[in-house]
Structures are given as C-alpha cells and as structure tokens.
Amino acid sequence: MLRLILRRVALSVPLLLVVTAVTFVLQSLIPGDPARSLLGPSATPEQYEALRQALHLDQPVLVQYRDYLLGVLHGDLGRSIFTGEDVAGTLAVRLPVSLSLIIGGTVLALLVGVALGVMSATRGRALARFVDVFSLVGGALPNFWVGLVLAAIFAVALGVLPATGYVPFEFSPALWAQSLVLPVIALSLSGIATIAKVVRDGVQGAMAQDFMRTLRAAGVPRRVLIWKHALRNSSVSLVTVVGVIFVASLSGTILVENVFVLPGIGSLAVTATARQDIPVIQGIALAFTIVTIVVNLLVDISYALLNPKVRVS
C-alpha cells in the first residue's frame, strides 16, 4: 500500500509541472494587459513601465515561469496584482468554502444516489424508469440554473433559506449549514443522477450473479444481500464515479459559487480571470490540481482496499 501511495505521489510531480506550465502559457496568450487594467488611461508612460517592471510583466514568459516555480518551491505563491494580498493566504481563506460545498455536494449525491439506485434496482420498473428520467434530466440541467430556481423558491418565495452569502463555521455552525443547503443541492443534482444509475446497474448485475443465488438459498436475508453483497460488488465502479464527480465539482463550483455569491475558489477564479490577475490564476490552478491529485490518490487507495487484486498487482 505504501509503495502504491509513494508511486502515485511521485507521478504527481510531473503532472503539477505540466499543469502550471500550461496555465502559464495559456494565460500569456490571453489578450489584455493587467498593468493597463490597474493603471487606466490616466497613468503616464513612466508609471506604466514602472508597474510592468514591478510585476515582472516585462520579462519573457519562460523567465516569469521559472521565477514562479522558484517561489512555489519556497512556499511563496506570489501576491495578487490588484489587492496586493498573499495568494497562499487568499486561497487558505477561500478553499474551506469551496471544499465545504464540494464535499457536501458529493456526500449528498452519494447518499441520495445510492438510495435511489438501490431502490430502483430492487423495487420494480416504475422506480427504475424514474431513475432513468432523473438521470437524463439531472445530467442535462445546468447547476447554475438549478441554483437560480432553488433561490427563487426557497429564498425569495418562501423566505426559509438565504439567497446569497456564506457564514463561516466558526461563527455559527447553524448559519454555516443554512448557507450551504441550496448550493449543495444545486451542485449535487447531476451527481445524484449519475450515482443512482451506476448503482442501479451494478446492483442489478450483482443480483443476477450465481453467488447471490447461492447466498439467497442459504437463507441470507434480502437486506444483507443487497446492502452488503450486491452493493459491495458494484463499489469499485461507484468509487470511480464518486472520484469523477468530486473532480467535476471543482469546475461546477465556479458557477454555483457565483450564483450564491459564496467566497470560494470558484468565484475568485472568475474575478481573477476577468482581471488577468496572473498570480491568483496560477494559485487557483495549482490548488485545483493538488485537490485533483489527492482525490485520485484516495480513489486508488479505495480500489486497493476494496479489491485485493489491485493490492497484489
């Protein structure tokens, strides 16, 4: 197991280099000029050149990238061009918001998706059809649109949940949870649909296996057959899907955070991109990449735990 983890961590280093390099190159191709954005047309040419030098924008992209990597190795992600704030500090403030949303959305998708999937696999055709339709609709509806509809109903019409904003957990756990209810539901909808379909197919397939018939003949209760044996048999594909949903939520959170005005990484990404705040964009890309690597590592470890063949190989 340790070898597996070490191998995966070692493989993530070149991935980080590739992602940061690609981000650097791509952002350098975007038209625009952050120094001009910051200074406006009133600045003198001398002020403009001085700022470009201060921000190292006068350097070739490769030199900027090298300096950036050296900074990262020393734990320095740079400072925002516009706010002057330390990027690492900014990410530290905003990452818990995004992770609250993503983890909440993934857990909700897992709970509801598994329940729906199992029910549809074991409770007859009508529920199976419902899951089919729900998978189609849930996968097709954009999460930001779902968010707007939820806000219109539960915040504006019913007035029971906030339309916007985020309350830190340490300020009030109840308000924190309240501020996340609608965003989490909006983010989880497509995940619920996907998991429900995967679980239904997996459970149905497992239930048709010979060993299940044997267990049934041996008098094992149906509840144990479904929740212990059939579900475990489909757990590898379920873990894969959950990992994919988690990673997809990283991009999904960008729109959901903007709909509900949550101060997470997603809304920061929109602002930073619009302003070409290069250090912040780089920091976000790095954070997203690290989260993705960690999630993939956890998925690999889960494979090994669930399937002894993986451990042996």
Binding site: L148, A155, V156, A163, T164, G165, V259, V261
Partner: peptide, 18 residues
C-alpha cells in the same frame, strides 16, 4: 459591502433582507 455580480441576484438579496 457585498459583491454580487448578477443584478437579479442583487434583487433577490434585497428582497430577502440580506
């Protein structure tokens, strides 16, 4: 001072007392 990019979301925040 809250930054709420979308005008419709601003209206929702106003209507809900936020």
């Amino acid at each position: 001072i809250k930054v709420i990019p979308n005008p419709q979301q601003q209206v929702q925040a106003l209507k809900t007392g936020q």
